[in-house]
Amino acid sequence: MPYALTITHLYPDYLNLYGDTGNLIVLRRRCQWMGIDCTVKPLTMEEVAQSGQTDLYFMGGGQDMDQVAVVNDFHQLKHEAIRADTEAGVVFLGVCGGYQLMGNTFLMGNGEETQGLGIVNVNTRAPSTDVKQRCIGNLVVEINSAVYAEMQTMYATPRKIPRTLVGFENHSGQTYLGEGVEPLAKTIAGFGNNATAEYEGARYKNVFGSYMHGSLLPKNPHFADYLIGLALRRKYADVNLTLPTLTDTEEFAAHEFVVQRYR
């Protein structure tokens, strides 16, 4: 049966730094190649969110002024509906600034901490003087075992997928996970959540946060498929739903190159 997937891109005109749009290009194309009917809808300032309308939220990072405006707008017009969705298992991916913004508090460029969107229990703080001022560079991480196990169930035909994720981080905020939130991965090379944690990203229900640019999904097609699979399984209430295997020669070649070069 043909599946359909609705993706909501949050504040695309405000939060669009660092090639994060690459993640949407990848989700859209992979759905197309798999025969999934994919619709991407922007949801931006002054628009009211309604729950139950989307299968996957994506949020990137933006400039400071924009991020503050986003937080205010989100709390007025979107918080209740989106929070209801994420609590019900709708997939949400936030990258870098988007990841920080999803938490309870986040850091602005002037070092000031401010209220976040509050959809996942993480906090981002200004770096203390004893840690590096900015975490910057290539990042290679090992996916946490629960996520990796679930990732492997996504395909109709079992396939070999990397245990790693690769990307590029560039942040000064130090993110700490609160209760009920699991790290997405363990850091092999680079920093991840903060200069000392040795973990990268966050998972709470189907809410994912990551510091990885690169963009994140192009070189990690297994993670892209995982998000698509999770979204479809929830939407169609079918935990056994699987995806076809795409030829990911170029993607995994680029992935492996980063693992070899920067590990």
């Binding site: 660092y18 090639g19 749009t21 690459g22 590029f168």
Partner: peptide, 9 residues
Amino acid sequence: GKDVSWLWD
């Protein structure tokens, strides 16, 4: 530029 993300922009 060490971060190739810009290729996606």
